[in-house]
Amino acid sequence: MRHHLILRVVTKLLVGTIILFAFYVQFHGDFSPGGGFQAGVIMAVAFILYGVVFSLRKAQKVFPPWLVHKLVALGVLIYAGTGIVSLFLGYEYLDYGAFSPHHPEHGQHYGILIVELGVGITVTGVMVAVYYAFAARPPRISDEEW
């Protein structure tokens, strides 16, 4: 899409805004609609848009595939690890009260933030990884064969 000047300029403007909005949805999710799943998807959309309008190669330079694959696992680890930390602090699995014994409400707050972060990281990773997997395959079947 080298000659689509308007698309490229608009994309450059939008990508930053989309990422900012993703962070807003992620960390403001306990006050307004949204949460890890939504934020992860919006974040992934930013990278996918960049990859579609510029090129897959450029997108992979910004967000390399090995990092994406690590993030996919990291998110689940953060979520499950939160539960294990609360186990070690003497509470039940995923009982966020453990993070602030005197103010269980604050503990819940921290717990939800961390857990949602884990969800967001995994969802971003999976979406971007699936996009990379699809887009990286060269079209092997020509139209005439169908």
Partner: peptide, 15 residues
């Protein structure tokens, strides 16, 4: 009063 998070959807989902 148990979670202290205004968005009940998030509270139910995550906690």
């Amino acid at each position: 009063h148990e979670i202290g998070v205004p968005n009940v959807v998030t509270a139910i989902l995550a906690s």
